[in-house]
């Protein structure tokens, strides 16, 4: 397990060794804040909350996280470094966890850099900091779930474009399952408890709870299970 650290460090710093990190962070921040202001009506809502930031995140992550996760294994396969990595004295699990945690930490860094928005809200009004913290926590967990799926898909191909497209599609399905508009359509012909069940498989209902400041162990368990399942399959796919 101690072998996770060197893999983590290499991967995390790797983002900053190329323009990828800067491009990604700038796009991430511009898009998050831009959506909150221009689509979410940050000022018009006249509320001291970050609701207008968080409401778009499931949609924003749909494109941004596959972009950050597509390279995780595809690049190693394409460059042949996967052979180098797996002939070093570490287990597949060490490598999978090291890489996943590094990419996750990078995404959390991006998320954390939206802090001026929180400060603005605090300066203009009197927000409920618990709700804001819950939103950030939920957003970080949701990013982990998106990313774990993208890491798995990236291990299946050496083509980053394929990894990206697969990542968007799989995550899109999981966003749709929990999207209220989609669920509204389903209620037209399915019983309510079936629709509830389907909605619970999606990201949004679990994230919404966090964004409202509700910390339900079931929501932790949901994101935790998605991450654990995807990473387990990631190990299996690499050992195949």
């Amino acid at each position: 397990m101690s072998q996770i650290t060197p893999v983590f460090k290499r991967e995390f710093l790797g983002y900053f060794r190329s323009p990828v990190a800067y491009v990604f962070l700038i796009v991430f921040l511009t898009a998050s804040v831009g959506m909150a202001f221009f689509v979410g009506g940050f000022f018009k809502a006249n509320q001291a909350s970050l609701q207008s930031l968080f409401v778009f995140q499931p949609w924003l992550y749909l494109f941004l996280i596959p972009a950050a996760g597509m390279r995780l294994w595809s690049e190693e396969r394409r460059g042949g470094t996967i052979e180098l990595l797996f002939t070093l004295p570490l287990t597949t699990l060490d490598a999978v966890l090291g890489k996943f945690l590094a990419a996750w930490a990078f995404l959390i860094l991006g998320l954390a850099l939206t802090f001026p928005l929180a400060i603005t809200v605090g300066w203009l009004g009197d927000p409920d900091w618990g709700v804001i913290a819950g939103g950030y926590l939920g957003s970080a967990l949701m990013a982990g779930a998106y990313l774990a799926l993208c890491a798995l898909l990236s291990s299946l191909t050496k083509n980053q474009v394929i990894a990206f497209v697969l990542g968007v599609v799989v995550n899109l399905v999981l966003v749709f399952l929990g999207w209220s508009v989609f669920n509204g359509v389903l209620t037209g012909f399915l019983p309510v408890n079936v629709v509830d069940f389907i909605a619970n498989l999606g990201f949004i209902p679990h994230f919404d709870a966090f964004a409202k400041g509700i910390l339900d162990p079931r929501d932790f368990a949901y994101f935790g299970s998605v991450i654990a399942l995807a990473l387990t399959l990631n190990v299996v796919a690499l050992e195949r």
């Binding site: 290499r10 790797g14 060794r17 470094t81 070093l88 004295p89």
Partner: peptide, 18 residues
């Protein structure tokens, strides 16, 4: 075993950005 072997894979792959 891996800790006792030094291995040079074909075409010497390495992390190019480092």
């Amino acid at each position: 075993v891996k800790s006792r072997i030094g291995y040079l894979p074909e075409s010497a792959p390495a992390y190019g950005e480092m």
